[in-house]
Computed example of a mutant assay.
Amino acid sequence: MIAFLGTGLLGGNFVRALIKKGNEVQVWNRTAAKATALEADGAKAFENAADAVKGAARIHITLKDDASVNEVLAQALPGLQPGAVIIDHTTTSIEGAVERTQHWQQQGFTYLHVPVFMGPANALEGTGFMLVSGNQEVIQQWESTLAGMTGKVLNFGPEEGKAAGMKLTGNAFLVTLTGGLADTLTLAKSMGVSLSEVATLFDNWNPGALLPARLQRMGGGKYDTPSWELNMARKDTQLFLDAAQQGGVNLTVIPAVAALMDQFIARGHGNNDWTVIGKDAVS
């Protein structure tokens, strides 16, 4: 028996995938209609979390944040069977993941934080990535089960909370990327460059392919053989800012990058490779 607490887009498709594989799944969601909708797929919905977890050897959670996880698990506690395993896919703080691991161990349960890089389609198809860290004996016991729910399980070692940190790191990149794209599209529009023309550019030139080499260069600590000098990158950045001003639009991410560039130029790094602006983050 499996219980699933939190059956939104991601959790709901996890449930559907588990049922397709022949598992019996009991579900609960704060908005009850999202849980009862899964009864059409074969799940059994409950009005409260404690009833939903009764008889379940493992409980999966996909909720919003630390507070909601703590609240729902407290509600579920009266129904948990001895020795139940709690597998939490929620994106949370490092501190929260560590505290819950310790707290539930003291209560006689296993808590494993397994955040994911998966969308609803991935959950249904069993593709994507799950991140895990902590007690390696526990992870070894459950890794094959988790692998059955995703394309790949990434084990980041014995440090509790490391998986939470890796998830936040990845999400920070996604947020930064999307913010940068918003600036890019805003600037393009102000210059009369259409979305389809931007798409044509990126269909032919994939800057994402530069990421591994860029990360290696930023982490290498050697910036004195530039492929693009910081002074020149800053000059181009000013062209972005000037074009945006002329187009009457506001940019959000690029002004912050320009300010960071100015700081490093003032520190004497103008002739270094422009990736030097990441120096303080990696040194």
Rank of each mutant, 00 (worst) to 15 (best):
V116F: 11
F117S: 14
F117L: 12
F117D: 12
M118H: 04
M118D: 00
M118K: 03
P120A: 01
A121E: 10
A121G: 13
A121Y: 05
N122F: 07
N122V: 08
L124D: 07
G126K: 00
G126A: 04
T127Q: 01
G128P: 03
M130G: 15
M130A: 14
S133M: 02
Q136C: 04
V138N: 01
I139P: 02
Q141R: 07
W142V: 02
E143G: 08
E143R: 13
L146S: 03
G148Y: 02
G148K: 02
T150E: 04
G151I: 00
N155D: 14
N155G: 05
F156L: 07
G157I: 06
P158T: 01
P158I: 02
E160R: 15
E160S: 10
E160T: 11
K162E: 07
A164G: 03
K167S: 05
G170D: 08
N171F: 05
A172W: 15
F173I: 10
F173S: 10
V175H: 15
V175A: 15
L177C: 12
T178D: 14
G179S: 06
G179M: 06
L181S: 06
L181E: 06
D183V: 01
D183R: 01
T184V: 08
T184Y: 03
T184R: 05
T184C: 08
L185F: 02
T186Y: 00
L187K: 04
K189A: 11
S190D: 02
M191H: 06
V193P: 05
S194A: 08
L195D: 15
L195P: 15
L195E: 15
S196R: 08
V198C: 11
V198D: 06
V198F: 05
A199W: 10
T200N: 14
L201E: 11
D203I: 08
D203S: 09
N204S: 10
N204A: 11
W205C: 10
W205I: 14
N206C: 03
N206T: 00
N206I: 01
G208Q: 04
L210N: 13
L211K: 07
L211C: 09
P212Y: 00
P212L: 00
R214V: 14
L215E: 07
L215G: 12
L215T: 12
Q216Y: 11
Q216V: 12
Q216H: 13
R217S: 12
G219Q: 06
G219L: 00
G220Y: 02
G220D: 06
G220V: 04
G220I: 04
K222S: 09
K222I: 10
K222Y: 11
K222P: 04
Y223I: 01
T225G: 10
T225A: 11
S227W: 14
S227I: 15
E229K: 15
L230K: 03
N231Q: 09
N231T: 12
M232R: 14
M232N: 14
